[in-house]
């Protein structure tokens, strides 16, 4: 039976010493922060760690804005970040992504670190009644590829897993070229967020580059010419309190009616937060003419693969990009 020990270490060093690892179902020890995802996973027996290490009170929760950009302590809540004046004014895409996430209740409790490491909403992953799920039990197969896969990813998939990364925040952050500060027993390292989540490949159960014992200490978002004119567009099946069917985060640097530089990332379609550099390159130097935008957005579909119920996402994500750019472009 899956019994586990709850550790409540007094300081971060002690916490790191347990070699816990997030985002890996076979890791014997795992962290818990706000608990909004972890409590669920434990309850539903999706996660059965031997040891659960509480990060409560151990990590920085400050939100700092300066000329270098933004620094979000891993323990900052979604609610606090969403309404922070500097975030709202200088990085609106982050605020919008957060305000369009989850519920007010969850946002009051959930942390930045936990948000980036929340697990997929693939219903087969979250229901142990389905034996086949490579992410949950490596080597067991994938119930979604030939199953109900409307929610699933169309880019970054493998034959072993097509689960979509559910975080809205992460999509906004990769568009802004954010990075994460990791803290481990061996010290600190910095990883660009785009390299933080791993593609499923044939190891879908390993979701990030975190080593045992490592935690996210903070998120840094560099100041940039695009961040201020940024926007998050989320297409979903109901008005609030629902994950993205498809989402697009865009950030623009405009020179009059021309796009000097663009940053574009997609949510709901990728096995990880999905930045589309080719689309960005095609947009640079161009205008906001819809036909131009559509041509650029079409590049996002390169390599995309639907599995039946989710085929529609390939086209919808292009339209989402176009719409998000139009909206951001129209902003002062």
């Amino acid at each position: 039976m899956h019994t586990f020990i709850l550790e409540r270490p007094r300081d971060l060093a002690a916490a790191l010493a347990f070699h816990a690892q997030a985002g890996r179902n076979d890791a014997p020890a795992e962290y818990i922060a706000g608990g909004t995802d972890m409590v669920q996973l434990l309850q539903e027996h999706v996660r059965r760690p031997e040891r659960l290490v509480s990060l409560a009170g151990l990590l920085d929760g400050h939100i700092e804005a300066g000329p270098q950009g933004l620094r979000l302590g891993a323990a900052a809540t979604m609610a606090d970040v969403a309404v922070h004046p500097a975030v709202v004014e200088q990085f609106p895409v982050i605020s919008e992504a957060l305000l369009n996430s989850a519920s007010p209740q969850v946002r009051n409790q959930a942390t930045m670190g936990g948000n980036l490491l929340q697990r997929t909403r693939c219903p087969y992953f979250r229901d142990v009644g389905y034996a086949a799920c490579n992410k949950r039990s490596p080597g067991s197969g994938c119930s979604a590829i030939d199953g109900e896969n409307r929610w699933h990813a169309v880019v970054g998939t493998s034959d072993d897993c097509i689960a979509a990364n559910p975080s809205d925040l992460a999509v906004a952050l990769v568009a802004l070229e954010a990075g994460v500060e990791l803290r481990g027993a061996g010290g600190q390292r910095f990883v660009p967020l785009i390299d933080f989540h791993r593609l499923p490949g044939n190891t879908p159960h390993i979701e990030s580059v975190l080593e045992p014992g490592e935690v996210i200490a903070a998120i840094t978002v560099p100041a940039s010419s695009t961040a201020r004119r940024s926007h998050y567009l989320k297409v979903r099946d109901r008005a609030s309190f629902e994950f993205a069917v498809v989402s697009a985060a865009v950030a623009l640097d405009m020179d009059g009616g021309r796009i000097r530089a663009a940053r574009v990332a997609l949510g709901g379609v990728g096995t990880k937060p999905w930045r589309v550099p080719k689309v960005e390159a095609a947009l640079a130097g161009g205008s906001l003419d819809p036909a131009v935008l559509r041509r650029a957005a079409a590049l996002a579909a390169e390599g995309a693969q639907g599995r039946g119920h989710n085929d529609f996402k390939i086209e919808l994500m292009q339209r989402a990009i176009v719409r998000a750019i139009e909206t951001a472009g129209a902003r002062a």
């Binding site: 709850l6 409540r8 818990i32 706000g34 608990g35 909004t36 409590v39 669920q40 509480s54 409560a56 609610a79 519920s103 007010p104 209740q105 969850v106 009051n108 409790q109």
Partner: peptide
């Protein structure tokens, strides 16, 4: 501040 009591561990 509003939270879901069903998601809030007593430790918090």
């Amino acid at each position: 501040r509003q939270v879901c009591a069903c998601l809030t561990p007593m430790g918090q």
